[in-house]
Design a protein around this nucleic acid. Structure first.
Length: 563
RNA sequence: UGGCGAGUUGUGUAGCGGUAGCACGAAGGACUUUGAAUCCUUUUACCCAGGUUCGAAUCCUGGCUCGCCAGCCA
């Protein structure tokens, strides 16, 4: 697959928009928006929505707004506003001067509410929350009308004014739309429009003590901003008749809502509420934990914005609920990083290797390619000496079938350096653990080629013990052990499937000296091991890398087959 | 047993009355100074049953299955 290709974007949303342009429905205009509630960090599911809204606007010469849906101050915080802005910028999207807030429209919304009251289409109710729930009926039984439903218009006007003025305690009154308590659509059974809520709002402070409900506010926000296509997720499908009702009763500009299926990925959870739980119970270290599908987590892990954009583009847009295989995300990662990441040698689990016939004090430098996918990146020098570290996995005393790496008596290549042959091992007398491998090298293979045409079956990465830098490497595995962690057995919680081995910290890794001053966030391929990103915890004295993703590993597959 | 929506290979997606395509995955092979990358080959699908039609994944009818909805959350 070539995720870099430009797909002739053709999905049901773009079909609708093309049709609307042809019929001149909105004077040919296309104006979308991404409307997050600032109550949590964004995750890759949001990235899909962001991608759809911004790229559609871009494709059709339209605009896309960023609008915070800040209608519930009990859950929303400035920290989230800041994080969301940072994440969308990082993804590479720009909303120009069109950063809006639902709270900018509170006054206008109140005026609309008064209009509805005046039309006899809204009333102040004083049923308790519990009573409202009872009166609403169930999915199969119709609701009952509130005894306050037929209050005179003047009284409603007065009460609503006093609700706003702060004359009543929290929860004592609500403003409800007067629609249809018998509707088979629960959303139409006189939904609440305003509640009394004394909470400090991140932007309006204590100015308001009544706040609009999402269902009331959302359609108005889109209308006020002149949005043409209000793209949202499937669960809002049966709210659409309600938005339509509000807009039509008010007689104001009417965008078209289009719903698409939200993104799911195997072995993770894609819900703000659940991600918050993992953070709160310290299963992970924060919203930016590299195991989480949050944008800040993926960024810290080492994802590039391009990976996420490609992924979003190629997962498509549809109305059927689907779950993408996490392997596809990893594919997108490797595809991008393979092009971009500088190659380097790093040993994760070091095993001492001594070249018996190499002069004690000699040091050589070999030229290593920075990126074979991009020769313009040039080469660097890698020091070589008598004592090296190789990967523990790259030596077996008793090699299994199809194992090509180093074993007693076997010859392999050290990348860019020499052919070496294993001539012996040293074991710890007590534990029996191999502590050192002894080899001889063939000076005629300098640079890694045998002039006599001799071949070896494998090439190992290595670092010079004297020159290597110590590093910490954090290995990540899937955050959950179950394909769908939401599919919980009774009495358990999705956290029962949290993968306790999703983080493994290796503290005695060795990397080549070229990595001495790497900046936080830079990405490398440790040859044969995977892609790694410098963590913010890293410093020149104490390097810390996150493994972004391993390389595809054929040997691992062979081993699994052999089991 | 109310309403809304959705069913194309293991996964995701195309198709819009005329040979079911693409990508991921999987399996095999070529190449290889990364068991990577790259290249080649193979593999499996139209939810079911009727109907319309020369011809149906596509249109019609009926069923089945799955998702969402009973916050003063969004």
């Amino acid at each position: 697959m070539t995720t870099g290709d430009i797909k002739p974007a053709h999905d049901f949303i773009r079909d609708i928009i093309r049709r609307d342009i042809q019929t001149n429905k909105y004077d040919g205009r296309v104006h979308t928006r991404f409307p997050p509630e600032p109550n949590a960090y964004l995750h890759i599911g949001h990235a899909k929505s962001i991608y759809i809204n911004f790229s559609i606007a871009n494709e059709f010469n339209g605009l896309c707004n960023l609008r915070f849906d800040d209608t519930n101050p009990t859950k929303e915080e400035q920290e989230y506003i800041d994080a969301i802005i940072r994440d969308i910028r990082w993804l590479g999207f720009d909303w120009g001067d069109r950063l809006h807030y639902a709270s900018d429209y509170f006054e206008q919304m109140c005026e609309y509410a008064v209009q509805l009251i005046q039309k006899g289409k809204a009333y102040v109710d004083e049923l308790t929350a519990g009573e409202i729930r009872e009166y609403r009926g169930t999915l199969t039984e119709p609701g009952k009308q509130s005894p306050y439903r037929e209050r005179p218009i003047e009284e409603n006007l007065d009460l609503f004014k006093r609700m706003r003025a702060g004359e009543f305690p929290d929860g004592s009154y609500v403003l409800r739309a007067k629609i249809d308590m018998d509707s088979p659509n629960m959303n139409m059974r006189d939904p609440v429009m305003y509640r009394i809520l004394r909470a400090r709002h991140p932007r309006t402070g204590d100015k308001w003590c009544i706040y609009p409900m999402y269902d009331w506010a959302h359609g108005l926000e889109d209308s006020i901003e002149g949005i043409t296509h209000s793209i949202c997720t499937l669960e809002f499908e049966d709210h659409r008749p309600l938005y339509d009702w509000f807009l039509d009763e008010l007689g104001i500009y009417h965008p078209q809502q289009i719903e698409f299926a939200r993104l799911n990925i195997t072995y993770t959870v894609m819900s703000k509420r659940l991600l918050l739980k993992l953070v709160q119970d310290k299963s992970v270290r924060g919203f930016d934990d590299p195991r989480l599908p949050t944008l800040s987590g993926l960024r810290r892990r080492g994802y590039t914005p391009e990976v996420i954009r490609n992924f979003c583009q190629h997962t498509g847009v549809a109305k059927a609920n689907t779950t993408i295989d996490v392997a596809f995300l990893e594919h997108c990662l490797r595809e991008d990083l393979n092009q971009k990441a500088q190659r380097v040698m790093g040993v994760l689990r070091p095993l001492r290797l001594v070249i018996d016939n190499y002069p004690e004090d000699q040091v050589e430098e070999f030229d290593a390619m920075n990126n074979p996918e991009d020769h313009a990146t040039g080469t660097r020098k890698v020091p070589f000496s008598r004592v090296l570290y190789i990967e523990q996995d790259d030596f077996r005393e008793e090699p299994p079938p199809k194992y090509y790496r180093l074993a007693p008596g076997r010859e392999v290549r050290l990348r860019y350096a020499y052919f070496i042959t294993c001539v012996g091992i040293t074991k710890d007398e007590r534990s029996g653990e191999i502590v050192e491998v002894h080899c001889t090298y063939d000076p005629a293979t300098r640079g890694g080629d045998a002039s006599d045409g001799r071949r070896v079956k494998s090439t190992l990465h290595w670092v010079s013990a004297r020159h290597a830098l110590e590093a910490e490497v954090r290995l990540y595995d899937l955050p959950f052990s179950k394909e769908n962690p939401m599919d919980v057995e009774e009495g358990t919680d999705f956290r029962a499937y949290f993968n306790p081995n999703s983080l493994e910290v290796l503290t005695s890794c060795r990397v080549e000296p070229a990595l001495a001053d790497v900046p936080s966030g830079s990405r490398y391929q440790f040859e044969r091991m995977g892609y790694f990103c410098v963590d913010p915890d890293s410093s020149p004295g104490k390097l810390v890398f996150n493994r972004i993703v391993s390389l595809r590993d054929t040997w691992l597959k062979i081993q699994k087959q052999q089991e």
